[in-house]
Design a binder for these strands. Sequence first.
DNA 1: TTGACGTGATACCAAAAAGTATCATATTAA
DNA 2: TTAATATGATACTTTTTGGTATCACGTCAA
Lengths: 112, 112
Amino acid sequence: MTAPQQPVFRALADPTRREILQRLTHRNMTIGEVAAGFEMTRAAVKKHLTVLSDGGLITMTPKGREVVTQVDPTGFAPIRDWLSFFDHFWEDRLDALKTAIEQENEHDADDQ
Amino acid sequence: MTAPQQPVFRALADPTRREILQRLTHRNMTIGEVAAGFEMTRAAVKKHLTVLSDGGLITMTPKGREVVTQVDPTGFAPIRDWLSFFDHFWEDRLDALKTAIEQENEHDADDQ
DNA sequence: TTGACGTGATACCAAAAAGTATCATATTAA
DNA sequence: TTAATATGATACTTTTTGGTATCACGTCAA
């Protein structure tokens, strides 16, 4: 169970892709609709969508001759998990700091 | 107050840099010590450290002729903030879904 | 059925990023 | 002081990535 989070971080590294994600939260869109919202070509936008899909952040569902793209909330899990590692770390650090301060205070009391 | 998060996402996009971050949580290290833990050259590792620093994820403090690198917990804030946008979105969506289900149940009761 | 429409796929280009090699500079220790 | 050490800085190579252009294919509508 180790680190297949590269596709997710890769997907989020580009500002256009992050923008696409935000827009898709408002409403699901076909590939053409997403592309219409950007200055670049359809092919470029579709590449971004593929990267987002590879990262598990969106799903692409064929519907007739169109393809509906929508955000997949579960795709964010790997990032959250990775970040939680640091959360635990900070908690432990803070606990240690707290303990140290308490002991320091006890010593101060002893000194008096 | 909008979106200077590109450097952070950029910094996290590379697996070597994420690995460096994790190792730095165990103990602060000089540039040389960090570099010693990887197969690549010092120059390459130092580049990664620069990117991490630009992203605000680590601090680099000169100490004599050495430079001590350490994780900066506050640097993670931009990502968390960005992710929180989606959190709120999901919450709202769930609330809407819950309301819809409740109304659905009321209709069912009416039908009986 | 035929043509327009939405998408898939491929080849190609340019810029950014990852990495190496090399040399310069400052600091520490013998 | 001198030599070893740690880092800074620059130039260069290679790979990845973001982007365009083009054409093929399936689907829908007149």
